[in-house]
Design a protein around this nucleic acid. Structure first.
Length: 428
DNA sequence: CCTCCACCGGAAAGCCGGGTCA
DNA sequence: TGACCCGGCTTTCCGGTGGAGG
């Protein structure tokens, strides 16, 4: 990528060009790329009419002086939960300010606001109270919030997005929020919990759960045609006329539909495809760009998982990249030998082979490597391993870890040893 | 048909950091 | 504050095994 950009600039050194001219001049494909981002809330949500209607009905008591039930929303990622809720909330706020209904809505993403204190403090701030970011006892903030709601006599709707993130850190905050109504005289609080993890229900205290999920809404995954509609809708806003080759949208939709009907994936795929097309100075997004995008997203994802792997797994992977230079298949024993030597070189205690065997299984299920158990008769039974991911990209990701820096120095030596087959013997 | 290799993978116990409770 | 517990990671121990070679 970098090379390509520099290359082109070198070639045109004569002209007085700004570094960004290249990119600025070639934006014929995109009209507005923000439309494809996750944060964008569209004007309408195709194929979510039913859920919108249900949500509206559940919330309608707010405008008639009643109290809506607490609502629990469940659906996999990219099924439009957040978008739908935000969409409905916005309408609710608009109409309630028009009707002068005393309704206040607070949207919280629990991935960011992930402790009891922060939840309560955000609430307090939304209510105009001046609560410091840290410092106060949590129950004091709770009192503050309760009093503020009570004195204003408002109907409050609190949306807790990614509520599963709260359970571990702030279950008691959830508990007190579900019970707050019993302490209020002339104000009401309703909760909307959003989660993409259904198992989360089983972790939750039964009392919280029953109060939280008085009403439940399920968001099913989108199918390919539905995804197509969504992409078409966004395409109109995001791209210039005729910037997409025929078949691009169906392909993106089909791929995303295979993977759990995730609209977010579909949009990402389309955006990345377009970015590749743009970089290649093509006037249109073509099927081949989508194919490239699929691979790019795959490797990016793989790199990200590799980055977050624990140290020993990284060393293990590094050993395998070395072995992969010699042949594309190798066995547990070979990997373990190299791994052990590498550990010795950087003064790290090696794990046992038993553990390595487990780590290999984990890498297998992550899809970084592919291993099958075969029998070589007299020569034993073992895993036959090959690296599934792009080895170069993998190596690059591994070398980012400062703890593996020293292994590079050892690389040449290791190669020679591999060629000579010295790796069978014990180390030190 | 039997042997025996080189590892698989289950069970159980140990270690460690963090959280809880009196 | 220290005793205690919990869960994740790791080691120890060990029985199990498909099939090439005898």
């Amino acid at each position: 990528m970098e090379k390509a950009i520099y290359g082109e600039i070198d070639g045109r050194q004569g002209d007085q060009m700004n570094l960004f001219d290249n990119l600025l001049n070639s934006t014929t494909i995109f009209k507005n790329r923000d439309v494809l981002r996750h944060s964008y809330t569209p004007e309408s949500l195709p194929h979510r009419e039913e859920q919108i209607q249900q949500l509206v009905e559940l919330l309608s008591p707010l405008l008639k002086g009643g109290t809506p039930s607490n609502i629990f929303i469940y659906g996999k990622t990219g099924t439009g939960k957040t978008a739908t809720v935000k969409f409905v909330i916005k309408n609710l706020e608009d109409i309630s300010s028009k009707m002068r209904a005393n309704v206040m809505v607070l949207y919280l993403n629990c991935e960011i606001i992930d402790t009891a204190y922060r939840v309560l403090a955000s609430l307090a701030r939304r209510l105009g109270k001046n609560v410091p970011m840290t410092g106060w006892p949590t129950d004091q903030v709770y009192e503050e919030v309760k009093n503020a709601i009570e004195s204003k006599g408002i109907k409050m709707v609190i949306v807790l997005d990614e509520i599963d993130k709260l359970v571990k850190r702030a279950e008691e905050a959830l508990y007190s929020l579900t019970r707050i109504n019993s302490e209020l005289e002339n104000a009401r609080v309703s909760l909307i919990g959003i989660s993409n993890n259904l198992k989360f229900k089983s972790f939750l205290d039964a009392r919280i759960l029953s109060s939280l999920s008085e009403e439940e809404l399920v968001f099913p995954p989108y199918n390919a045609e539905q995804l197509e509609d969504i992409l078409k809708q966004r395409t109109k806003l995001a791209f210039a006329e005729g910037a997409l080759e025929d078949g691009v949208i169906p392909l993106c939709s089909a791929i995303a539909a295979q993977e759990h009907g995730d609209a977010r994936k579909a949009l990402d795929l389309l955006r990345v495809s377009a970015e590749i097309a743009e970089r290649e100075r093509d006037s249109k997004v073509r099927i081949k760009h989508v194919r490239k995008a699929i691979r790019k997203i795959e490797t990016d994802y793989m790199i990200e998982t590799v980055r977050t792997l624990p140290l020993h797994t990284k060393i293990l992977l590094y050993s395998m990249t070395l072995l992969a230079e010699e042949s594309d298949k190798f066995t547990t024993g070979e990997v373990y030998c190299v791994y052990k030597k590498l550990c010795g070189k950087i003064c790290i205690e090696a794990l046992t082979q038993r553990r390595i065997s487990d780590l290999l299984s984990e890498l297998d299920s992550l899809g970084v490597i592919n291993s099958i158990i075969i029998s070589k008769g007299r020569y034993g039974r073992t895993r036959e391993i090959k690296i599934e991911a792009d080895v170069e990209a993998l190596k690059k990701a591994l070398e980012e870890d400062y703890r593996l820096q020293d292994l590079k120095k050892f690389e040449e030596e290791a190669r020679k040893m591999l060629k000579l087959g010295i790796f069978e013997e014990q180390t030190f």
